[in-house]
Design a protein around this nucleic acid. Structure first.
Lengths: 328, 328
DNA sequence: GCCGTGTGCTGGAACGTTCCAGCACGTTCC
DNA sequence: GGAACGTGCTGGAACGTTCCAGCACACGGC
């Protein structure tokens, strides 16, 4: 079932068939209709390999996730969003092995790359940026080297500020933040925003550093330390979502009721935040839509409908739950 | 930088260059070395589109995950394992949008498919099995239709029996199991194994049904119900990993100490089980290796080094933690 | 009546690889 | 010393698509 079969069946040349199906060249309305009908009837599917060879494009984009992605459902949702959006533009999404430099030939296998939450200490990120194809990053890359062709960013400063405003409104006078070190745009923005908010509101936010992909045990230790050393501590914002159960465990262990004695919130919504007891107030980064937005931008760059260097914003939302209201 | 450039630089015909690089045909040792050297020096990368066109294979395999995958780090690890293994064989792994029938042309885009934990009520699974390319399933497919070309299975009956043996050894006399309905091979095997073990050991295992991707809240409700209605309940095995925090919450709420008053275990190891407090004893399905095994089998099928219909076993391990020993 | 222009369509070439038939040469065998 | 065979290499064809030059024809203007 090739283009030639369709052309033969419709009584035209392969060029005309190609033009009709591809919307290029000059074809009269009637023949175009006829060719489309025939193609539909025969169940014609263009051969992607031949198309790729001729057009010298692959019809696929690559997706790179942080090495530490393994513990967050956030990235899974993001990936599924990106896959869906790519499919709408006829693009396949190939998953790249995290942490491994996939050996030079990347540019031959994909038309563009999605690099999500690029961390400065991920050695494969510079290679990806230098692969010779357009790259869209999810959040900015703080390292040097070749600049990405585009980026989709969240206003993490604004979302943390909103979260802190909410906590203050709920009566918190002594909030703390558990955040990773400034190796990613996201964490760096959170740390900076905490400082800004402190100065603006005149309320000091205690910041403790935890790993990018903190485990509940690590968060529990950090929270226990906060409870022991910060007098009057009444709110904890935990940046990484996977660590939420640890914060709640530390609270329970100290005899503090989440939502009343200790307000708890998290900067990444997900299964961990939704499913905890009590459910935890969270910044919803809308992972699937974020993935869609990244794929859409890359698609636009490939199509030439977006300018290289463009940065698009992605909206967030605050999901308020019992961990900051006390109402179950 | 094409094969022709390499051939010219090495002073041979493109056929000889192709033979030398591909290991096919008849080439003398010395010319072969020379050609390989030249290719390396010039940084030659074969054009995948041209290769695909000529060989009529795509060099990619598809990965389908359950629609409900979004909440389990298990599938992410599995995907990364599969991607790594596929790469070792020069195959790209394209992620398929879950839940959507990806529109007929699948066979033209991938050489084979990995369908992980196929659920009987997932409408896209029959389409995938019927796509016209080899399919390897992770766990068996309980629905009808076209049979997969291969499968990689875990002995879920044995692992649950080992878990129950362990609980009995730790003194449990009244264990319960929270398991999904029998829509997947995994859940069906667990339910059957619980019955077998009950009969064999003369100890009744109470079984409660929870969703395939149960939330902590759902598990908490189910566990609270067990505690309230099963006199002497002393152990809970929770099948889905995402639900573990719920079981622990219900125990805490009832004033039961996990690991002493109530033994807790889970059938899928992951971040939720490892990171809980206390850490929860779990059956480690070794997700990354599982993904590798699935990709390896598909690769073998494509290469013709495995017979269609083959079923391979995948080993599991029991990770014993404080939730069943009481020792932190 | 001829030129210029626009329309609808065609045939051939090209993309880079792999496969196949076949050629020149050397060795072995009877 | 010719037939039979194995080795090392070559050139052309093929895969299915897209792009480009160009052809036949119709139409309008002078």
């Amino acid at each position: 079932m090739t283009l030639i079969d369709v052309a033969r069946a419709a009584g035209v040349s392969k060029s005309t068939a190609s033009n009709a199906l591809g919307g290029s060249g000059r074809v009269s309305g009637t023949t175009r209709e006829r060719i489309l009908d025939v193609a539909r009837e025969l169940g014609y599917r263009p051969n992607t390999a031949a198309r790729s060879l001729r057009r010298s494009s692959t019809g696929a984009i690559g997706l790179h996730l942080p090495r530490t992605a393994t513990r967050l459902d956030y990235y899974m949702n993001l990936a599924f969003g990106a896959v869906e959006r790519a499919r709408e533009d006829g693009l396949d999404l190939v998953l790249l092995a995290p942490g491994t430099a996939s050996g030079g030939g990347l540019a031959a296998r994909v038309d563009g790359l999605l690099v999500i939450d690029p961390e400065v200490d991920d050695p494969s990120v510079p290679d990806l940026l230098d692969a010779g194809v357009p790259v869209v990053t999810g959040e900015r890359y703080l390292g040097g080297g070749v600049a990405p062709s585009g980026a989709v960013v969240c206003d993490n400063a604004a979302s943390l500020a909103a979260l802190l405003d909410h906590l203050a409104e709920r009566g918190a006078r002594r909030p703390a933040l558990l955040a990773p070190g400034p190796g990613s745009d996201w964490a760096a923005a959170l740390r900076a925003a905490a400082g800004d908010w402190s100065r603006r509101e005149g309320v000091d936010v205690v910041v403790r550093t935890v790993p990018f992909a903190a485990t509940p045990a690590e968060a529990e230790a950090a929270t226990a330390d906060l409870i022991a050393t910060v007098p009057g501590l009444d709110a904890v914002v935990c940046a990484p979502d996977g660590a939420v159960p640890g914060v709640l465990a530390a609270a329970a262990h100290a005899g503090l009721q989440p939502g009343t004695d200790l307000l708890v919130a998290v900067c990444v919504d997900g299964a961990a935040a939704r499913g905890s007891s009590p459910p935890v107030t969270a910044v919803d980064l809308r992972a699937a839509e974020y993935g869609r937005a990244c794929a859409a931008l890359l698609s636009d760059l490939l199509a030439g409908t977006a300018q290289p260097g463009v940065v698009r914003r992605h909206d967030w939302a605050l999901n308020i739950r019992a961990s900051t209201t006390g109402r179950p």
